[in-house]
Amino acid sequence: MYSHILVPTDGSDISAKAVETAISMAKLLGAKLSTISVKEPFPYSAISEMQPVPPQEFYDAQERIATARVKAVSDAAKAAGLDCEGFTVEAVHPWEAICDLAKDKGCDLVVMASHGRRGVSALLLGSETQKVLTHSPLPVLVVR
């Protein structure tokens, strides 16, 4: 059915539920598992040359956080007897990075979390999950 599952993670509790689901599905289907954590780009300001955090310090912190998130997924997969390839990617729009990686790595399913926002809050805040659902040519399993 599915041979390569991608599970994005932001380190939140709700994304941990998606990780559990993706691991269970990969194990059940004998599928390959990959994970991605998207790093924020440095917030350059045109107003001032003074930045609150030096760029390299910002990049290092973003990489540490993303790597820890990917490692947590890989460790959970390993505990379940699966290998998991992890990726950290810098992107302005996480949904684009998720869709691009899924395509580049030949994934055939994306399993991701949704915070379940509805109405005006969903409209104003947007949702990376909603954007992946809208733009991905692949099936997307949404876990709440």
Rank of each mutant, 00 (worst) to 15 (best):
M1F: 08
Y2N: 12
S3G: 13
H4L: 04
I5Y: 02
V7Y: 06
P8C: 08
P8V: 05
T9C: 06
D10N: 13
D10W: 03
S12Y: 09
D13C: 00
D13K: 13
D13I: 03
D13Q: 11
I14M: 14
I14S: 09
K17I: 01
V19K: 12
E20H: 10
E20A: 14
T21H: 14
S24M: 07
M25G: 01
K27H: 14
K27N: 14
L28S: 14
L29C: 10
L29K: 11
L29N: 04
G30T: 02
A31H: 05
A31N: 08
K32V: 06
K32G: 06
L33W: 06
L33D: 10
S34E: 14
T35D: 06
T35S: 12
T35G: 05
K39N: 07
E40I: 01
E40P: 00
F42L: 09
F42A: 06
P43K: 10
P43F: 07
S45G: 11
I47P: 00
I47K: 11
I47E: 13
E49F: 08
Q51K: 03
P54L: 11
P54H: 08
P55S: 01
P55M: 07
P55V: 09
Q56E: 14
Q56F: 03
E57A: 14
F58I: 07
F58P: 02
F58Y: 15
D60Y: 00
D60S: 13
A61V: 02
A61N: 11
E63W: 00
E63D: 12
R64F: 03
A66G: 13
A66I: 07
T67I: 01
R69K: 13
R69S: 03
V70D: 04
K71T: 13
A72T: 12
A72C: 01
A72N: 13
V73C: 07
V73I: 07
V73G: 06
S74P: 00
S74N: 05
D75S: 08
D75R: 04
A76Y: 02
A76E: 10
A77I: 05
A80C: 03
L82D: 11
C84M: 04
E85I: 10
G86K: 09
G86C: 06
G86S: 09
F87R: 09
T88H: 04
T88I: 15
T88A: 13
V89P: 08
E90L: 00
A91S: 15
V92W: 03
H93K: 15
P94I: 00
P94N: 01
P94E: 00
W95P: 02
I98M: 09
D100T: 13
L101Q: 10
K103S: 15
K103M: 09
K103P: 01
D104W: 01
G106L: 02
C107M: 12
V110I: 15
V110R: 01
A113E: 10
A113M: 08
S114R: 06
R117A: 06
R117W: 05
R117K: 14
R118N: 10
V120G: 02
A122C: 02
A122K: 15
L123H: 11
L124Y: 06
L125S: 12
G126T: 11
E128G: 02
E128A: 12
E128S: 07
T129I: 03
V132I: 09
T134S: 13
H135F: 12
H135N: 14
S136P: 08
S136W: 00
P137Q: 13
L138Y: 10
P139R: 08
L141H: 11
V142F: 10
V143E: 11
R144I: 02
